[in-house]
Design a protein around this nucleic acid. Sequence first.
DNA 1: GACATTGTTATCAAAATGTTTCTTTTCTGA
DNA 2: TCAGAAAAGAAACATTTTGATAACAATGTC
Lengths: 229, 229
Amino acid sequence: MKKNRSNEIEIVVIDDEQDVLELIEYILAKEGYKATGFLSTDYVEQFLEEENPAFLIVDRNLPGMEGSQFVSHLRSKGYELPVIFLTAKDGDKDILDGFEAGGDDYMTKPFKPQELVARIKALLKRSGIIQYNKLRYRDMVLDCQKQELNVDNSQVSLTNLEFKLLTTFIKNSHQTLSRDFLRDEVWEDDGSFNDKTINVALNRLKKKIDPLDRKHYFTPVWGVGYKLS
Amino acid sequence: MKKNRSNEIEIVVIDDEQDVLELIEYILAKEGYKATGFLSTDYVEQFLEEENPAFLIVDRNLPGMEGSQFVSHLRSKGYELPVIFLTAKDGDKDILDGFEAGGDDYMTKPFKPQELVARIKALLKRSGIIQYNKLRYRDMVLDCQKQELNVDNSQVSLTNLEFKLLTTFIKNSHQTLSRDFLRDEVWEDDGSFNDKTINVALNRLKKKIDPLDRKHYFTPVWGVGYKLS
DNA sequence: GACATTGTTATCAAAATGTTTCTTTTCTGA
DNA sequence: TCAGAAAAGAAACATTTTGATAACAATGTC
């Protein structure tokens, strides 16, 4: 029901061989994905419903329900998450069956880990799950598409102005930003402009992203402006 | 950036061997696609600009510019159309290069025509060029052919506009949709357009699918638009 | 014409942003 | 070092912008 709180992309892997499962989980973990393995299709649907993972990697020879049948079933239920088949079944007909069932890609075992990762990435990109407009500073991650900020893996909601302000600072993290610069860049100077507007805006931002003032993201530069620290 | 007027999906194929080109064109035509072949990357960019085809199939060993280089170039220019590499270059490194350059899929020659077609279809579906039959989000299931919505297993009737709106949100469930985007996508901007039209339409939709406002499917993003939650 | 759909307008509420005032901090020079 | 000036912070208030909602008008459909 709810998306993962953290920024991690969650991938479900279904394979009946424990060691293959572990290998894949290891590969995915190394790439920064959160992998959840299943030895059969049992409970997977329930898991999808509850956790809403981003991606599915599925073998075809599974106990109980065959992999492509399972995917077909999911599709008929309206699940549209990207699916890669990863299986020893490598006949021409098998591959076509996989796509017919609603798979997005089909890889045969044995497989190259790097190719699996590349294909996953391509699909995540194509499905719009990966976004590139991300900015990072210390433990902050800004998602420019969603206008969202994560600080230390918990979401902080920012207003447009605050977002623009923070973006400007992170894009220029190496230098002190003068009030003049900020006025030009963030506010698009409408002439009349109160001295304190910038101060107030910045302090509101500070309070939102670090309410307890423990992290001191911003340092005032006396008589000039502010810089990230 | 608008789709071809006709119903046909237009696919560009680049391959320096005339007979391979013709074979692929033949395969695609038989599947009902409109194929346009090129023997090199020359003029392809111009063609993309003018015709805005839906899909690109590209060889790697091309006279002039190498295939992956060309794709990389297109990506950097902002072309987002799906790309399949279809090439004899089958080394591990080659495949990774292909994905690195921005390819969506990678097939090696010799290839099975049916597999090519299956991969094209999968990608067209995933890119939203072909419609899905069903979409799901939380406890909502949309049947796009019947224009029907089921929420928590009971049917809710939606108007065309409402259906299109909801579909757009579910297809882009991972990001905030700005009013500009919605205007382009759902209404096809007739120029005069009241600010509040979108608000009203969305609130009507909200009320229909969740009359008691218990589920909070939509979250307004202040000053921007809405997102699914 | 009756009805459903969609767009428009008006009103209110909420959120964001700007302004003012006062307090606190920081810097400077005697 | 300390007093005073200048700058920044904080809180309260004011203004503006935006969103929700309802009522109404326009449009299209049968």
